[in-house]
């Protein structure tokens, strides 16, 4: 019981940014655009989220008091999401309109986000990293739900609203992709763009929307991570979370709920590697095994359990109207 109460909230906290970002990855890849730039989109989200928070917090607290302080991180996250969506449109312009190699453009997005972020931080603050934010996301007890015996303390006490938002969003994305006309179009564009084009779907428009949505979600993921964990922005704020989210996309077989499960799995693994030494059953295992466990397990899962992952058929290929 106490062990669960220790692992689950921290695992959940690790998982939430991964869930947001992986959902973005699912949307992008379902439309046929590989997105290795998820890391960069998270960096952009973290950068914008922190800067907006730092700049906005004094104003909000002066005018709206404690409500303002509570609202500030949410506004920061929204702005981060919008800016990251715009930033992701660069990936869309390069890959959709100019038929660039999607993997390479994604790598460029990763470099660009960090370069732009650090360059602007130097411009604004004159140093390599920001101060700590005054209005981070704080943990709360969710009313009513946290009173449920057993489940309440584990899942709803001292938790973050963003955690639950991530889970709900996974179901929303699942519904959109599999139950709505928009989702059908999105999938058809990723599976067989020429057929989709024949029935009048605007392939390139769908892909632009999908890539920009991946930026939106990646921006949420990055800013949520920055406003819960790091609480400032520097060179190493986002270090690999985007790549883990990408792994969650593949591990989850390009399915929103699969990605949700994979992200939670990575969250558990990461939290075990951090707090594992305090757990009776795991305290004698050298920490390195817990650290590498998520990655080794992913490889094993890809080879054995998951089997050959079926990626969207047109993944990675640009659509050229009129070609066969």
């Amino acid at each position: 019981m106490s062990v669960l109460q220790e692992i689950i909230p921290s695992a959940f906290l690790f998982a939430a940014p991964l869930i947001f970002t992986a959902l973005g990855g699912v949307l992008s890849e379902r439309s046929g655009i590989i997105n290795i730039g998820l890391e960069g989109l998270m960096v952009m989200g973290a950068f914008v989220g922190i800067v907006v928070n730092l700049e906005l917090a004094p104003f909000m607290m002066e005018n709206f008091g404690s409500t303002g302080k509570l609202l500030t991180p949410w506004i920061s996250i929204l702005v981060a999401a919008i800016v990251s969506a715009l930033f992701a449109s660069l990936h869309a312009i390069a890959t959709v309109t100019f038929r660039a190699d999607q993997v390479v453009t994604g790598v460029a997005i990763n470099f660009l986000a960090l370069g732009v972020g650090l360059f602007l931080i130097k411009q604004i603050y004159g140093k390599g990293q920001t101060d700590m934010v005054d209005a981070p996301l704080n943990s709360t007890d969710i009313p009513l739900l946290s009173d449920i015996p057993f489940i309440g303390p584990i899942f709803f006490e001292g938790t973050y609203y963003t955690n639950w938002l991530a889970v709900i969003l996974a179901f929303v994305v699942w519904y959109v992709i599999f139950k709505t006309p928009f989702g059908l179009r999105l999938r058809s564009v990723g599976e067989h763009p020429i057929a989709a084009d024949t029935v009048g779907i605007n392939v390139n428009k769908m892909r632009y929307i999908a890539v920009m949505l991946s930026g939106f979600f990646g921006g949420i993921g990055g800013s949520v991570f920055a406003l819960t964990f790091a609480q400032n922005f520097s060179h190493g704020t986002i270090s690999g979370q985007g790549f883990i989210a990408l792994a969650a996309v593949v591990f989850g077989k390009w399915h929103p709920l699969g990605a949700l499960g994979a992200a939670i799995f990575f969250g558990v693994a990461q939290s075990l590697s951090v707090i594992g030494s305090g757990i009776p059953l795991l305290e004698n295992i050298p920490s390195v095994y817990l650290q590498i466990a998520p990655y080794v397990l992913t490889i094993l899962a890809l080879v054995g359990l998951v089997g050959r992952a079926e990626s969207p058929k047109a993944l990675g290929t640009p659509f050229i109207k009129g070609s066969r």
């Binding site: 312009i93 190699d101 453009t105 460029a108 997005i109 370069g115």
Partner: peptide
């Protein structure tokens, strides 16, 4: 000039090479 500028430049170079179709157009 902050040295991060060069990271932006290299990222853009990669970007332009990848999007060589743009240059051809």
């Amino acid at each position: 000039v902050p040295h991060e500028l060069v990271d932006i430049i290299t990222a853009l170079i990669i970007f332009f090479v990848a999007a060589s179709y743009m240059i051809i157009l």
